[in-house]
Simulated scan of single mutants.
Amino acid sequence: MKAIICQEHGMPESLIFGDLPDPKAAAKQIVIQVEACGVNFPDVLIIQNKYQFKPELPFSPGGEVAGRVIEVGEGVKQFKLGDSVLALCGWGGFAEKVAVDIDRVFPLPPGLPSEIAATTLYTYGTSFHALKDRAQLKEGETLLVLGAAGGVGLAAVELGKLLGAHVIAAASSQEKLDLCKKKGASETINYEKEDLKNRIKELTGGKGVDVVYDPVGGNFTEAALRGIAWKGRYLIVGFANGEISQIPMNLPLLKGCSIMGVFWGQFSKLESEKSFQNIRQLMQWIQEGKIQQHIGRKYSLEEAPEALQAILDRKMLGKGVVVIRN
């Protein structure tokens, strides 16, 4: 089969378009003919050997796919040949076929295009878990989203609005902020041009924000933490700018606030039933038109390394998707 191959750890330009052996379904697995694969920040980390999960070389990146079942392993009763599914494979998705454990596979809702399905789990799954399960965001609260025009950030803006919060979107350009406005942000901050902490205080009348959603890290973390309200909740989602934040620990004390880690991948494994419930709710909202993924660009399989580079360069608006023509 054709695939994007990581033969040695490195940056996207080191990836190779070539051939890998077709996967076989082990017990409790299915093989999916991949139609689309979402592009996510963990894909950038995994090829550099910087992610929590470390597959053996060689491998294909790509962690969320949609397609149809072409082989079922021993003990599989939930799925049959020809079923349309979406799945969390972790890696292996930038390929024509991938084998996935059945506890990481979900039926594709009728009428939902594979390109939309394959860009839903990571971003909306992460953001919904963060806002609902970790922060327990309440209607009427104020939510600040950093990196708000990226995949998880834009999902957080949209879900925050749907959950009844007053959403402040922070990003690095007017183009990105305009997109956030379309997705439901009430206020915006250009943190390349404006002082983040001071602007938070201005927009909240000095109170600060109740919840901070931070997939960016770096210098923005401390500034946002200084702009949090009493008993606020700070969500550590990731470090897209490449720098793990160093937080002065007197700030949580003075703010009476909580700092919460958001590791959706582990949550979806350790609390699988709760994760399934979240995903069912997200699928319902998508079918009802209450949330809608913004796909910034579609890529061919050969172009997948370009998609990863766009994430590194912070040029991806919303989500990218690799579309595989079989």
Results as ranks from 00 to 15, higher is better:
194 E>Y: 12
32 I>V: 15
265 G>H: 00
173 S>R: 01
122 Y>W: 03
182 K>E: 14
179 L>N: 11
243 E>D: 05
210 D>Q: 01
179 L>E: 10
136 Q>M: 10
26 A>E: 14
18 G>W: 12
280 R>D: 13
218 G>D: 09
297 R>G: 00
51 Y>K: 07
109 P>V: 08
215 P>W: 03
272 S>Q: 11
108 L>C: 07
191 Y>H: 11
113 P>N: 09
259 I>S: 11
178 D>H: 03
266 Q>R: 04
3 A>P: 07
276 F>E: 15
180 C>E: 13
179 L>G: 07
168 I>W: 03
239 F>A: 06
20 L>K: 11
320 G>S: 09
146 L>Y: 01
207 K>R: 13
127 S>W: 07
3 A>I: 07
222 E>Q: 10
38 G>P: 07
109 P>W: 12
139 E>G: 06
270 L>A: 13
23 P>F: 07
293 Q>W: 01
21 P>D: 14
124 Y>R: 00
56 E>I: 01
222 E>T: 14
25 A>W: 06
14 S>T: 14
306 E>S: 14
229 A>Y: 03
106 F>N: 04
219 N>V: 02
161 K>E: 10
54 K>I: 02
246 Q>R: 10
185 A>E: 06
19 D>S: 05
55 P>D: 01
234 Y>F: 08
279 I>Q: 10
132 K>Y: 09
231 K>C: 13
19 D>C: 00
59 F>L: 09
310 A>E: 15
136 Q>R: 11
60 S>H: 13
121 L>Q: 08
221 T>G: 09
88 L>W: 04
285 W>P: 05
221 T>N: 12
245 S>Y: 04
110 P>H: 04
138 K>C: 06
292 Q>H: 14
255 K>G: 10
276 F>W: 15
287 Q>V: 05
53 F>E: 12
280 R>P: 00
191 Y>D: 01
140 G>Y: 00
160 G>I: 03
54 K>M: 08
294 H>V: 14
17 F>L: 15
129 H>C: 05
92 G>R: 09
11 M>E: 15
182 K>H: 06
123 T>R: 06
203 L>E: 06
256 G>V: 11
50 K>F: 02
15 L>K: 07
259 I>W: 05
211 V>F: 06
282 L>E: 02
274 K>L: 07
71 E>L: 04
65 V>N: 04
21 P>L: 08
227 G>Q: 12
223 A>M: 07
262 V>I: 07
20 L>I: 13
129 H>F: 04
196 L>K: 12
231 K>A: 15
232 G>E: 08
86 L>V: 12
197 K>M: 07
217 G>T: 11
107 P>H: 14
172 S>L: 01
261 G>T: 04
8 E>Y: 11
54 K>G: 04
235 L>D: 05
296 G>C: 10
143 L>P: 09
55 P>R: 02
280 R>S: 13
178 D>Y: 01
104 R>W: 12
196 L>T: 11
282 L>F: 05
240 A>M: 02
100 V>K: 04
59 F>H: 08
139 E>F: 01
32 I>D: 05
268 S>T: 13
157 V>L: 09
323 V>W: 04
92 G>Q: 01
148 A>L: 00
47 I>G: 13
144 L>Y: 08
223 A>F: 02
48 Q>T: 00
138 K>L: 10
236 I>V: 15
269 K>T: 07
117 A>S: 02
117 A>Y: 08
19 D>L: 02
